Lab assay of single mutants.
Amino acid sequence: MTSCHIAEEHIQKVAIFGGTHGNELTGVFLVKHWLENGAEIQRTGLEVKPFITNPRAVKKCTRYIDCDLNRIFDLENLGKKMSEDLPYEVRRAQEINHLFGPKDSEDSYDIIFDLHNTTSNMGCTLILEDSRNNFLIQMFHYIKTSLAPLPCYVYLIEHPSLKYATTRSIAKYPVGIEVGPQPQGVLRADILDQMRKMIKHALDFIHHFNEGKEFPPCAIEVYKIIEKVDYPRDENGEIAAIIHPNLQDQDWKPLHPGDPMFLTLDGKTIPLGGDCTVYPVFVNEAAYYEKKEAFAKTTKLTLNAKSIRCCLH
């Protein structure tokens, strides 16, 4: 018999989150649709729960009410004593943790798909938090293969000092899905179709896995975050240069030392320094102006996964 890495157990509980950011409308629209008619997301033997994560922000069509829901799922915020004085999103995070967690427990949901849009030209993107997770690498390989020839990129946010504390991190297997470009507060049919297909293929993978299909060893190309880059700023902290036209919409493309990065209003080009080629992502993302992030630098690498098969009882 072929030796293989056996994944822990079959997958039982899956959640699909929309509206973690209330103005990213593809996930909101799909989740609302699936709450009314969820036939397309159901798979035999699998509990799939669509869920609106930040209903107040969705109602106002804004990213958040008090603070970013997708950055506060750490033990400090989840452990705060519940009171009306807490920011709305912290209270909501505790409610979500109660419903789908608790985080880092045996009772937490197996998989959470968190649906997002970006204003950046990132196409279909899967966000991975753990480079050693054979199950998710296999799932992402399946999704990428199923979507081809449509490109699907994998963004690895594993980093020693950049801690995200994402909404989906309460699950055993957290999956971020990011599709763009799409303006905030807008629905685009092409973007919706791409996100819908990503979810379909992900659920198909889980179904095949649960039925005992063995997935042979595989490898995927990923883009691992190195650092986030702020806009150049003046002495008052105001933005002093904008994304250069040569960099705009060039997510995932190589940016070499000396290539144009920013452009000042008086026409001066600010190039990339250093001696390493990087791959920019979230270029000129609207939501990241407040976070002082013009783009993120990534490096390209390959992740390998062992063969996996479900432990059938």
Rank of each mutant, 00 (worst) to 15 (best):
H208S: 14
T264V: 02
D107Q: 13
H10R: 15
K213R: 14
C276E: 15
Q184L: 13
K300F: 00
F100G: 05
T125M: 07
A7T: 14
E214S: 08
N304W: 15
Y164V: 14
Q194F: 09
Y223P: 04
H33Q: 15
N210H: 06
K253Q: 12
K200M: 13
L150C: 11
N70A: 10
L86D: 12
I225V: 15
T2D: 15
I225T: 13
D85C: 13
Y173G: 02
N133Y: 02
F262N: 02
H10S: 13
F51K: 02
E9M: 08
K80M: 14
K80D: 12
G38N: 14
H116F: 09
E47L: 09
G176Q: 13
V222C: 13
V48S: 00
S3N: 13
L203Q: 02
I220Y: 01
G18M: 05
I157P: 15
L272K: 01
E227N: 07
Y288A: 15
N236M: 09
Y153F: 11
K228F: 10
V281E: 03
L46K: 04
Y88T: 07
F262W: 07
P216N: 06
I6G: 14
L156Y: 10
I127A: 06
R196Y: 03
E214T: 10
D130V: 01
D259Q: 08
Y88C: 08
R71V: 10
Q250I: 06
Y288V: 11
P55Y: 09
I226Q: 10
S83Y: 11
P149Y: 01
A240S: 14
C4A: 14
L30F: 04
T145I: 10
L86A: 13
Y231F: 14
R43W: 04
M261S: 02
P280N: 05
C67V: 13
V90Y: 11
V179T: 01
K268R: 12
C152H: 02
T53L: 05
L30S: 05
Y279D: 02
S307E: 09
T167A: 14
P151H: 07
L128E: 03
D204R: 05
L35P: 01
I112N: 01
N284M: 03
T167D: 06
K292M: 09
R132F: 06
K297L: 15
K300E: 04
Q42N: 11
D68F: 00
V222K: 02
K80T: 14
L128R: 02
N134K: 02
Y288N: 15
G258F: 04
Q12A: 09
N284D: 03
G45S: 11
S307H: 08
S120D: 00
L150V: 14
G38C: 11
V222W: 03
N70M: 08
G19D: 01
N133M: 01
C310T: 10
S161N: 14
Y164C: 14
L265G: 08
H116I: 00
A7M: 14
I226S: 08
P151Y: 02
E40N: 01
T119N: 10
K49D: 08
V281F: 01
Y289C: 14
A287I: 09
A305T: 00
A171F: 01
L303G: 06
G237E: 06
S105W: 09
P257M: 02
D230F: 10
I191D: 05
I112Y: 04
T277K: 07
K253G: 06
R233E: 07
F215T: 04
K228Q: 09
K49M: 11
K306H: 13
P216Q: 08
R63P: 12
S105H: 13
I199S: 03
L46P: 04
E47G: 07
Y231N: 02
A305S: 07
E40G: 03
N134D: 15
H208Y: 13
L25S: 15
W252K: 02
T26Y: 02
S3K: 13
T145A: 12
D85I: 13
N70P: 07
I111C: 09
N117H: 03
E211N: 14
Y289R: 15
I191M: 09
R43D: 00
N133W: 01
N304P: 09
V281I: 15
L126F: 07
Y88P: 06
F282Y: 14
N23D: 14
K253V: 08
L75A: 14
H201N: 07
D230P: 15
G19V: 03
H98C: 13
V14I: 09
P181E: 02
L303E: 06
L263G: 03
A171C: 14
R43G: 01
A57G: 07
T62Y: 10
Q194S: 10
H313T: 15
A296P: 05
P257K: 00
G185E: 05
P149T: 01
D66Q: 09
A241Y: 01
E227P: 06
V283P: 04
V283Y: 05
R309L: 04
K213T: 12
E211I: 09
D85L: 13
K297I: 15
P50M: 00
P260N: 04
F209C: 02
L136C: 06
I239L: 09
C67S: 11
W252L: 09
Y155N: 06
K253A: 08
I206F: 06
A305Y: 06
V14N: 02
W34H: 01
S108W: 07
P254H: 01
L263A: 07
K268H: 10
E238S: 09
T26V: 02
E178G: 15
K60R: 12
Y64D: 06
E293H: 15
N304V: 11
R309N: 10
E178K: 15
L75C: 13
E9H: 15
E47F: 08
T167H: 09
R43E: 02
K32V: 01
P183H: 06
P174M: 14
N54W: 03
Q182T: 13
E158G: 07
P183E: 06
C276N: 13
A39N: 12
D275Q: 09
Q138P: 01
H5A: 14
D130F: 05
D230W: 08
Y155H: 13
L301V: 14
L272E: 00
N23Q: 06
L263C: 07
K200E: 09
I226V: 11
Y109E: 02
T2F: 07
V283S: 06
I199W: 03
K172N: 06
N117I: 04
V58R: 03
V175Y: 04
V175C: 00
A296K: 10
C67A: 13
E293P: 10
M198D: 04
L156H: 05
C152I: 15
V283N: 02
L126V: 02
G237W: 00
H159T: 14
A305E: 06
I239Q: 09
T26E: 01
S108F: 09
L35D: 08
L203E: 03
D104I: 09
S131N: 04
G273S: 12
